[in-house]
Nucleic acid binder design. Sequence first.
DNA 1: GCGGATCTCGTACAGTGTTCGAGTACACTC
DNA 2: GAGTGTACTCGAACACTGTACGAGATCCGC
Lengths: 233, 233
Amino acid sequence: MTGKQFTSVWIREPRKATGPGRSRQEIVRAAVEMLDEQGLGGLSMRKLGAKLSAGATSLYWYVANKDELLELAYDEVWAEMTVPDPGRVGWRDSASALAHSMRQVILRHPWSADLIGSMPALGPHAMGVADRTRKMFKAAGFTGLDIDFANATLTAYVFGMTIPEIAWNTAMGERGYDADEMRAAVARAAAGHPDLLERINMDTHDDPQAMREMCFDFGLVSMLDGLERRLAT
Amino acid sequence: MTGKQFTSVWIREPRKATGPGRSRQEIVRAAVEMLDEQGLGGLSMRKLGAKLSAGATSLYWYVANKDELLELAYDEVWAEMTVPDPGRVGWRDSASALAHSMRQVILRHPWSADLIGSMPALGPHAMGVADRTRKMFKAAGFTGLDIDFANATLTAYVFGMTIPEIAWNTAMGERGYDADEMRAAVARAAAGHPDLLERINMDTHDDPQAMREMCFDFGLVSMLDGLERRLAT
DNA sequence: GCGGATCTCGTACAGTGTTCGAGTACACTC
DNA sequence: GAGTGTACTCGAACACTGTACGAGATCCGC
């Protein structure tokens, strides 16, 4: 083992807490709050320092750099995901509940969507979720590599469905459109594609929220059906 | 129609080209090149200007701001995705080919993964792809909302599988690890979760590339199975 | 009281996106 | 050719950003 030394947030000991608002935990908590309110671009070390009544550079005593802080905040998100015990209900209900939980958590912390593509989730909470979901698929009857393939498939579906949903939401927010204005915008963009326009002009836009949940459920059920089939053979 | 005026990159006429290296198209092309080489963080207006032997702020004549430039570059990525004609082969092969194409394109332009969660794909090329895939699912036999649900499900799967893959790749690249060092890192992170370690220590890591493709295919087949079942009822 | 460790933070640097306005170059009319 | 207007370039400046550095402060054990 003479290779490069492995260093990571998750290995290095955090500094001990002294006063309130000065421990690594407090900093991460404040960062998450700020991210929830102002998004990824709204978090700056100076502003975060101000929020904690501290100098901007004081934070660097507890945290190596901003990326590391984001890694810590990201893992905090994983802590909110609930993996039901597959023993009590069937694995399908269990997987379904996990999927919905993941979606809700990401929607609650939209900035985390940007991190999914930037840093692997290696924090303790993420690992806990991975461990429990793995146990879940194992209990479902998957074996060998299929355990992890099924696992990856489920989380991929949730991520892939939710991440663009967030792009949609933030685009609406930034431009200040409501749902109707947004629809008009995409209609303009879809000009020349009659098929797409047919979809956009469907009279199903009364409740876009419910609509998206229907879509999510459709895909989720399909995907679980597919996994179940895999299980039968 | 007295509401806010809709403005977007896709509506406003681009400036006409004059010299080489000065049209909007040339700028976008150079931006894509730069993004491919240096990633999202490696693109700055000043560096892009220098690459085109232009002042940094000259670009603002052709492009409103950096976000708009990214939107244009993003759409260029969509142009590379190929949607096979479902008439020649079955819809399953067609969907499968599309999925693989999308994955490859995103892996080729890893920076696009970050944009999926930031801006909806409303450019002409993205719309073209959406239109063709919609036709594909229609031809497959889906009707009404199910057309778009199935469509969303497929792209969600591809995105969700590919985006974390990119996070993995860039993390390896930035820290300068090879596959083995990375595996050691996650093993360290997974300490205390015997189940996870069992997976990590499997002797299947000879070719991580092939491994990921196996995983992708497993999920893809499952997901298409699930959609097919939807079709039967 | 005296180290030594722990912790704070002002200053500074290199970089960012973007605005503004002055300047240039070219095409077209008289 | 002179004049005029439009298309285009870009240097300077502004308000930010993350972070390295090092000087000071505070506290604890002796």
